[in-house]
Design a binder for these strands. Structure first.
Lengths: 339, 339
DNA sequence: TTGAAAGCGCTAACAT
DNA sequence: ATGTTAGCGCTTTCAA
């Protein structure tokens, strides 16, 4: 790899001049610039981003970190796409960290990211009291939270109205005549799990249906958990007639149990999932789901981070995006209030 | 952020000594080491990975780049997981680059990656004559290819026997009595697309079924393309009675068209997809698919890269993993040779 | 066992 | 309009 020095020598100028043409500073002789550019071409010069970052951290090092809890979750994949699209167009690279909802792994990654002198972070905190994330403020490294807010810190934040999304889904179920609606939750320490439960309860309440403990099951937020929890639900004495599943992976797991038990949707059991997926309509039957604008979340978060990097002092902003209930066929039609 | 200098001052030693305890060099006074460690703790010291990388590129900079053509494809997500799991345990960070099968984007990323002085790359080349990748050899940066080999270069390579996987799938279709089997392909310049077509043709040949041009459709490798191509296929004069789809996204698209046309699987049309997905069994009906060990591919590739970083001179190795036909319900049973 | 100092590739004063 | 130079935080001789 050739360096500034090599280019300078070849072009017969000082390294400062080369640096100037690279960052196209004003006041450069036209002919000089040309000569330098030629030298760069012929040497196949590519600037060292790390040297640049090491030298001047004020200015863009063009690298950010993204911490997601689960890369196998299509939701986060879409978020990542949104982040990547925005960042690429600003010459930023992304270090992807998949911390698997494991706080030790999270800390490992955080330290490494700091060591890389990233310009900023986009993070889905493990939970709302995640001091490891809060600590970033002390280190003065810009970050924006996605999906999950921090309780003791005022930060940039992009998420969705989980309570409302859940509320609408459960109301829809209730209006369709379902009464024994179960909620298959993810990890209760994750804010979204609880906000969605809140919406669920709010809907029940509104329709004067008593909340029943045995109809809510907590697990981790993965497919296997959804599968197991659903099995529990469908084999206990009081069986639900409808399932509200806490995220897309849980939904998939639930679907598997339902299929294995030979149950029909919606004849035997109805289901609405939180998170829509590109293939939701190809499921059996097409799945009714609460759609989060995942790509948009990512894109907005990236925008916010970029702004903050450029202008560290600006006030924090919280962006709440809307969910959308995608009504398909996993629920029996009809507004019959009688079950 | 505190630096070596800060720690050195606090511990009352030179920065060289601090560096030594960090890299636990031999010959350090026990008491000194302790003092330094204390200082590091109290200052919350985290080493600058970029300074390290800048200084000594021979030794591990602990950063690699991964270039995938499509992060929305669950196959690559699994590959990424495999890479990440291995690399994390070796203190490596991953810069994720999603080049979207766009060669300009690919070049952009490649340059940036070189600028980051990554220790190595894991790449799925855009096609088998991708000179941008081959050029990495000149720059002396280690890389291993996944999923797609390079034709003019001898490299480390991890992939699957695509020909065989396709062959088995199509044979299975043939044995089940299907005769007009279509192949919904991805981009023909991608080696896997062609290898899978090869397997398809080989099977046809074996069963004395003439290859028919109008039963093979090429598109890009995304869901929409699968959807469109399938629509073409199912509305043309000679309709196929079975579909062999070139990758998971294409499969999903095909499924969508089939559903929209109100066709039943396998009664009206059979389908086998290349690539299995975690939710294949929850599809309607459970999808028969050619499973690639994606996670394993990633893991092996990471291993290979790590080895090569440690021992640049070792001979190239090519790892060919086996596919597995996951027989489920998207195909009509029976060995009837009569259609 | 420890320290001093050079230098990795770059930017940003400061000179000229 | 261009050159000189001092670092950024680290590793690594070379000395002591």
């Amino acid at each position: 790899m050739s360096s500034l020095k090599d280019v300078a020598k070849k072009a017969g100028v000082s390294i400062a001049t080369v640096s100037r043409v690279i960052n196209n500073a004003p006041n450069i002789n036209h002919e000089t610039r040309h000569r330098v550019q030629l030298a760069m071409k012929s040497l196949d010069y590519r600037p060292s981003r790390i040297a640049k970052r090491l030298r001047s951290k004020a200015v863009s090092g063009n690298l950010i970190g993204v911490m997601v809890p689960d890369i196998s979750n299509p939701f986060y994949v879409d978020v990542l796409s949104g982040i990547e699209d925005f960042m690429l167009s600003h010459d930023y690279l992304i270090i992807m960290c998949n911390f698997s909802q494991d706080e030790q792994k999270e800390q490992l990654y955080l330290d490494a990211l700091v060591g890389e002198s990233v310009d900023g972070l986009i993070v889905a905190p493990a939970h709302e009291r995640d001091e490891k994330i809060i600590a970033l403020e002390k280190d003065n490294i810009p970050f924006v939270c996605i999906d999950r807010g921090l309780i003791d810190a005022n930060t940039d934040l992009v998420l969705v109205d989980n309570d409302k999304g859940a509320y609408e889904a459960v109301c829809f179920l209730l209006e369709s005549g379902y009464k024994d609606i179960a909620y298959v939750s993810g990890l209760p320490q994750i804010p979204t799990s609880r906000q969605r439960e809140q919406g669920y309860r709010r809907a029940l309440n509104e329709y004067n249906i008593a909340f029943r403990k045995d109809l809510v099951k907590y697990g981790d937020s993965r497919m296997k958990s959804g599968k197991l929890l659903t099995l529990e639900l469908l084999t206990q004495k009081i069986k639900p007639d409808a399932l509200f599943t806490g995220n897309n992976l849980i939904t998939l797991g639930a679907l598997e149990t339902i299929a294995e038990m030979g149950l029909e949707i919606p004849a035997d059991i109805a289901i609405i999932g939180f998170d829509d997926m590109p293939w939701s309509s190809t499921l059996n039957p097409p799945l009714t789901a609460v759609r989060q604008p995942a790509y948009e979340i990512g894109r907005r978060a990236a925008e916010l981070l970029y702004q903050r990097i450029c202008e560290p002092g600006r006030p924090n902003v919280k962006i709440v995006l809307e969910t959308e209930l995608m009504i398909r066929k996993s629920t029996r039609p009809g507004k019959t209030k009688t079950k």
